[in-house]
Simulated assay, not measured.
Amino acid sequence: MSEKILIVDDEQEIADLVALYLRSEDYEVRKFYSAALALECIRSEVLDLAILDVMMPEMDGFRLCREIREQYTYPVIMLTAKGEEIDKINGLTLGADDYITKPFRPLELIARVKAQLRRYKRYNTGTGPEETQDLIIHSGLVLNGKTHECTLNEKPLSLTPTEFSILCILCRQKGNVVSAEDLFRQIWKDEYFSKSNNTITVHIRHLREKMGDSFEDPKYIKTVWGCGYKIEA
Results as ranks from 00 to 15, higher is better:
Y33K: 03
S34Y: 06
A35H: 05
A35C: 06
A35I: 10
A38Q: 01
R43I: 01
R43K: 14
S44I: 05
S44G: 08
V46W: 09
L47S: 05
L47P: 06
L47Q: 03
D48F: 02
D48P: 01
D48I: 02
L49V: 07
L52R: 06
M56F: 12
E58Y: 07
M59V: 13
M59I: 13
L64K: 08
R66M: 10
R66I: 09
E67F: 07
R69G: 04
Y72L: 12
Y72K: 15
Y72W: 15
Y74M: 08
I77K: 07
I77V: 14
M78V: 00
M78N: 01
M78L: 13
L79G: 00
T80V: 13
A81I: 11
E84H: 12
E84L: 10
E85A: 14
I86C: 01
K88Y: 04
I89C: 00
I89F: 09
G91V: 01
L94S: 04
L94H: 07
G95N: 07
A96K: 02
A96W: 07
A96L: 02
D97V: 04
Y99R: 07
I100W: 03
T101K: 03
K102N: 01
P103D: 05
F104G: 00
P106E: 06
P106W: 08
L107P: 00
E108F: 04
